[in-house]
Design a protein around this nucleic acid. Structure first.
Lengths: 338, 338
DNA sequence: TGTTAGCACTCTCACCCGTTGAGTGCTAAC
DNA sequence: GTTAGCACTCAACGGGTGAGAGTGCTAACA
C-alpha cells in the first residue's frame, strides 16, 4: 500500500466539510463546498477530492446520492490540528463563569452550570480524590434547642458539617472549649486516624459521646466522599437541542448513561495532557458512538488535577468548546489552586 | 336546559375508560369496555352511554373512528371521587423515602429524588419562606492560609456558611473572640437588621472589615434565599418515559417550563387543603394543558406549610400518586415538624 | 496532469392513493 | 332499556411515482 498523505487542498476541503456539517447537521455536497468555501474550484473537482477523502476514510456517505459526512477519523485530524496550536481561552466564557460564581455556593457545581449554559452542551466537572486529607480544625457551633453544628475543616480547605445533638447545658464557651481540645488532639491527623482515635477521647468531653459519634460519622462520610474522584454534571437536557437526539429513545439512552457516573469517570482515567478530545468510537462505549467528550485540565492545588468537560454530539464546534473549557479550567485553577 | 347528572352506571363506565386510558395511553373503544370491564353489557350499550358522556363533556374523540379519551372534566370527577374518601398513605413510598434520607444531606432534595424515583414522574418540593428568621449564632472557624469559614445559624436552625479572607495573624482564639462579640451584638436580630447594623461594628473587629463584608454578603444571600418560597425539582427527565412526550419539541417545552420556578410556584399559591390536584387546563398555563399537578401538604413546624408534588401527563394513576405523596408528606412533617 | 462540463444513474423524500381495520352512529328488533 | 346489524368515517399502512439532490464517470480542455 502506498502512502496517501492528504495534501493542503484536501485538508482545506475536509475542514470546510466539517465546518459546514457542524453548522447544518446535514450531509455536505460538492456544490455547497464549491460555492461557499472553495469558490475557485468547480464542484466536479471537489467531487474528485471528496471521493479521495472517502477512500482514505475521512468521509462517509449515508447513501449514494447524499452528500458526505465527516468520519471520526476526520474529526480526529481536525482536532489534532486545533490542539497543535495554542488553545485560546475564551474571555467571554471566563467572564460568564466569574459572574456566576458569586451566586452559587459550590464552585464545582457552579462551573458545571456555567459550562453547560455557555456552550449549550452537557457539562461534566471532575473533582479529584483527596486521599492525603488531614484535619486542620474542628469546631462546634451552638444551635438552638440542644443541637450543635459540627464543622470539620481540612488542610486543603475542604469543609463538611453536620448537625448533632448535645446536652442542653453546654453553652457557646463550653462548646468552644471542647472544640479546642478536639482540634488540639486531632489536627494534623488523616480522617482515617481521626476515626480510629475517637474512642480514646470519649472520656474527656464530659461523657457526652454524641459528639464523638457525630465526629466519627462526619469523618467517615467525608472520607468516603473525598476518597474517590467525584463527578458533577450540568445541563444534561441540553442534548435535546440537537437534531442528532430528536429521537426520544436516543435521548433517553444518553441521559441514562449520564446517571452511571462510574462509567463516565473512565473517560477521564487515562487523560494525560492539558486538553483531551475523545471522538465517538474512540471511547469504546456502545452508547456513545456518536458523542464526543472534550476536556480541559485544571489544577486543584498540591499536585491534584481535575477536569472540566463537555459531552455533545460528535458534530461539535471543537475550537469554540476548547476555548471555553480552557478559560473555565484556568479560572478554576486560580480559585482552587491556592 | 335540563339537568344531566350522570348515574351510577355512567360513572362506572367513565371510571373504566379512565383506568384503561391511564394504562394504555390509547383512545378507548366501546368493545374494550364491554369486554374488559362491563362484561354484562354489550358494546352497543356502552356506545350509547359513551355518546351521552361525550355530550356531557366527559369524553372526547380524537377523530370519529377512534375510541374516546377522557377530558379534563372527567379527570376532575374521578379525582374528586378519590379525594372525597380518605387518602391512604402508601407505606412503600414512605419506606422508600426513609431509606434514602440517610444517604443525602438535604431532606428536601432527598424528598424530591425519592418522589421522582418512586412515582417515575417529575417531583416538586416546595419549602416555605421563613421571614421571621433571627440570627442565633455567628461563628468564625479557622481555615488554612488566612481564610476563615463564617457560619451563621438562625433560631429556626437554618445554616449557611461562606469562606472569607482574614488577616493571617488571627488564630483560633482570636477568631472565637470576634465570634463572641459578633454573636453578642447580633443574636436575636433579623437578617435585615444585621445587614443594617454592620457598619457600626466595623471598628471593633480590628479594622479588618473583610469579616464585616463577609457577614454582610452572607446575611444578604441568606435573606434572599429564605425570604421566598423555594422550589426543588427532581427527576425532570422522567417525562421522557411517557408517549405523550415522545415528541422532542414537547419534551423540551415541558423541561423549560420547569426552569421557570417563579411560574411553577404559582401552581401552589392558592392551595388550601391537604391535597391538591390541578388538571391540565385548570392551571391556565398554555404549556401545561396536558399536564397535571398533584400535591400534598406537609408541615414545617411553627405554622409553616410546604408542598410535595408530582407533575406528569394528565393521564396519571392519581390514586397511586396521591398515596405516595401522602406518605412522603407525612414523613416530612415528622422530620421538620418539631 | 489537473480541471471542468455534461450526463446517466442512484437514492431519499414527499406525495398520492387504495386498502384495511377499528370504531362509531343509527335503526330496528327484542 | 338493550342489543344486533349495518353503513359510514377516518387513521394507518404499503406500494407506486415523480422531483430533487448528489454522485461517478467520461471526455474535452488548459
Amino acid at each position: 500500500m502506498e502512502e496517501h498523505p492528504i495534501d493542503a487542498r484536501k485538508e482545506r476541503i475536509l475542514r470546510a466539510i466539517i465546518d459546514d456539517y457542524v453548522l447544518t447537521a446535514m450531509p455536505v455536497g460538492s456544490r455547497t463546498i464549491s460555492r461557499k468555501y472553495e469558490t475557485s474550484l468547480s464542484s466536479a473537482t471537489i467531487r474528485n477530492e471528496m471521493s479521495d477523502l472517502e477512500e482514505l476514510g475521512y468521509l462517509a456517505q449515508p447513501h449514494v446520492s447524499a452528500g458526505r459526512v465527516p468520519s471520526a477519523k476526520a474529526y480526529r485530524l481536525y482536532v489534532d490540528g486545533l490542539l497543535s496550536e495554542r488553545v485560546q481561552p475564551d474571555p467571554e466564557a471566563r467572564a460568564y463563569f466569574s459572574q456566576r460564581v458569586r451566586q452559587m455556593e459550590d464552585v464545582i457545581s457552579c462551573a458545571a452550570a456555567a459550562i453547560s449554559e455557555f456552550t449549550r452542551y452537557t457539562a461534566v466537572v471532575m473533582m479529584p480524590k483527596q486521599l492525603d486529607l488531614r484535619v486542620s480544625c474542628l469546631q462546634l457551633v451552638p444551635m438552638p434547642r440542644g443541637s450543635a453544628l459540627l464543622v470539620i475543616v481540612t488542610d486543603t480547605g475542604a469543609i463538611r458539617d453536620t448537625v448533632i445533638r448535645v446536652s442542653e447545658n453546654l453553652d457557646g464557651d463550653a462548646l468552644y472549649a471542647i472544640s479546642r481540645t478536639l482540634t488540639e488532639h486531632l489536627a494534623g491527623r488523616t480522617l482515617q486516624e481521626v476515626q480510629e482515635m475517637l474512642g480514646a477521647y470519649s472520656r474527656q468531653v464530659g461523657g457526652d459521646d454524641r459528639v464523638i459519634q457525630g465526629i466519627a460519622d462526619l469523618a467517615a462520610r467525608m472520607a468516603s466522599q473525598l476518597a474517590f474522584d467525584t463527578l458533577t454534571i450540568g445541563g444534561s437536557q441540553n442534548i435535546l437541542n440537537y437534531p442528532e437526539y430528536s429521537d426520544v429513545e436516543k435521548a433517553r439512552a444518553f441521559l441514562s448513561v449520564l446517571e452511571e457516573k462510574q462509567r463516565l469517570m473512565a473517560l477521564f482515567a487515562g487523560q494525560g495532557g492539558a486538553y483531551g478530545v475523545r471522538i465517538g468510537p474512540e471511547m469504546g462505549m456502545e452508547e456513545m458512538t456518536d458523542c464526543s467528550v472534550v476536556t480541559a485540565r485544571y489544577r486543584a492545588g498540591a499536585g491534584h488535577q481535575g477536569f472540566v468537560g463537555v459531552i455533545g454530539p460528535t458534530r461539535m464546534p471543537y475550537a469554540r468548546v476548547l476555548g471555553a473549557l480552557s478559560a473555565i479550567g484556568e479560572a478554576l485553577s486560580d480559585m482552587l489552586g491556592e
